Simulated assay, not measured.
Amino acid sequence: MPVIRVTLIEGYDEAVRDRLLEGYSAVTRTVLEAIPDGITIAIEEVKQSNYRRGNQRKNPKAPPPAPEQIVRDFLGAMERRDLAAAKTMLAADFAMTFPGGASFAKLEELIDWARPRYQRIGKAYERFDTVPGMESAVVYCFGTLEGVWPDGSAFSGIRFIDRFTVRGGLLVDQKVWNDLDAVRR
């Protein structure tokens, strides 16, 4: 039964500490196949006044939002067509790839490409899975699409998976798989 001790500079809020504890638990379960009740993780805090690096006092940097939250916020902004808000979540080299190999670097290109495909589209989410990495996190979201075809008829229940890479609190890429074209035919 693993016991993991983590030391943080004081000042991180409870939500961040919870994310850290959940992450350590998930990694430990994956690497050691430990049962949840067999994993003990303790966070110890060092007072800011007792911590120096490079002989200078340091304060903890506020972490970015959870990668899943960044993805949810982006998808929400896109569904509302709030491109200004969506763009604030993108890395400078952001790239998107959609079914059929359609690739875009700008959100306006995506909107133009989608215009003849449907009048409106929305997503119902079944789940989000986050895979942490050393340089970035990968977030998968799964669910179904619903909306209105160009002729005004409704559609729903069309499967999709989106894969996002999140680095430094920004979206680096989005890869999309869905059955929209198969259903439309």
Rank of each mutant, 00 (worst) to 15 (best):
E33T: 00
T88Y: 11
R127E: 02
W149D: 10
A26W: 03
G100R: 03
D179Y: 02
L171F: 08
A42D: 09
F142K: 00
Q69I: 13
G100L: 06
V183I: 09
F104Q: 00
D129V: 15
F128C: 00
P36V: 03
L180Y: 06
R120Q: 13
V131M: 12
R57D: 08
V16R: 01
G147H: 07
N50S: 11
R57T: 13
E22V: 12
A95H: 15
T144Y: 10
A26L: 08
M78W: 12
R167Y: 02
I121T: 12
E22T: 15
L145K: 07
S49I: 04
I161E: 06
A105T: 14
R117S: 08
N178W: 00
L20P: 00
A85R: 03
I39E: 02
Y125E: 07
G11M: 00
G38D: 14
A34S: 14
S103M: 11
A91S: 15
D179N: 14
Q48H: 02
V16W: 04
A92Y: 01
G168L: 08
L110P: 01
I158V: 14
R53W: 10
A66Q: 04
I35D: 14
P99R: 02
I161R: 09
D179A: 07
N59G: 09
T28P: 00
E79H: 13
G168Y: 12
G157W: 13
G157Q: 09
D37Q: 14
L180E: 04
C141D: 15
K123V: 12
A84N: 08
Y24T: 04
L90R: 04
V3Y: 02
G133I: 02
L21C: 05
F98I: 02
P64L: 08
Y12H: 15
D129R: 04
E146T: 10
A34W: 05
F164K: 05
V31P: 05
I111D: 07
E109F: 11
F98E: 11
P99L: 01
Q174H: 13
F164T: 00
P2V: 09
L20W: 05
A95R: 14
R163V: 15
L107G: 01
W177S: 08
Y125W: 09
R167C: 12
R184H: 11
N50T: 02
I43M: 06
D73T: 10
S153H: 01
V166Y: 01
E10Y: 02
R115D: 11
A62G: 10
Y12W: 09
F104R: 02
G169Q: 09
E10F: 01
A62H: 10
V139D: 02
Y51S: 07
P63C: 09
R57Q: 12
